[in-house]
Amino acid sequence: MSAWAKHQILETNAILLMIGALIVISIGGIVEIVPLFYLKNTIETVDGVRPYTPLELAGRNIYVREGCYNCHSQMVRPLRDEVERYGHYSLAAESMYDRPFQWGSKRTGPDLARVGGKYSDTWHLDHLNDPRSVIPASIMPSYRWLAETELDITYLDEDLMVQKALGVPYTDEMIENAKRDAVIQGTLDPVEADDLLARYPNANIRDFTGTVTASGRLTEADALIAYLQSLGTAIDFNLYDDNANIR
C-alpha cells in the first residue's frame, strides 16, 4: 500500500481530516507566534511609553465605539513614503498597552499613529463637528454629537480594572483615582495636576474643547481629542536609536 493510498484514509474521513488539519495549522501557528514572546529582537522596551490616562482611555473607547478604525489605521509602516509623510515608523512598544490594538488595515482616511500634536485642539473640534469646514474634500462623516454629549465616566474605574486584568499595569492607586484624574485632565477641576502627572508622565492637561471651563462639564469630544493628541507622542525619537535592537 503506497503512501498516497494511506492518504485516502484522511481524505475519506471527515473527522480524521479535521484533526489532521488542526494539527498542521497548530504547528504553523506555534512556529510563527510563540517565538514572538521570547525572541529578544521582537521584544523591545522603549522609554516613554505609559498606559493611557483615564480620559485618554475614555476617548479611546469612543474611537472604538464610533468605528474610527474602519477608515483610519494607526501604524506607520517602515516604508519610505510613509515615513516621509507621517514621521517615524511605529514601534511595537507604542501599542503595548492597547487592548485591543488599533493598527487597522484600511486607510480611507490618513494614518493616525502620529497625529498627536499635529493639529490644534480647536482644529480637532471643528473637524469632528464638520470635517468639510476645514478639509473641503473630506468624505469623513460629521461627529457633531460628540461635543454635545456629556462624557459618561461612571464606569471609568472599571474600564481600568478590565485593562489591568488584560495585562496593562494600572495600579490600585490609578484605578481608585480614575474618575478624579479624568476630571483633572480635562481641567474641570485643575487642581492636583501634579498627582496626575506623577501617575501619567507627559499627559496633556487642558480644556481640550475650550468649553469645559464655561459649561462645567466634560464632553465625549474632550475625551476623544485628549486621546488623539496623545497618539504617537510617547517616544522622543531624537533619543531613540533605531538600530540598537537589531541583533
Binding site: 517602515p78 516604508l79 519610505r80 515615513v83 533605531d242 538600530n243 537589531i246
Partner: peptide, 10 residues
C-alpha cells in the same frame, strides 16, 4: 532588515 531597509530607502 526592515529598519535598515527603510533607512537605506530614505
Amino acid at each position: 532588515n526592515s529598519r535598515t531597509a527603510v533607512d537605506e530607502a530614505i
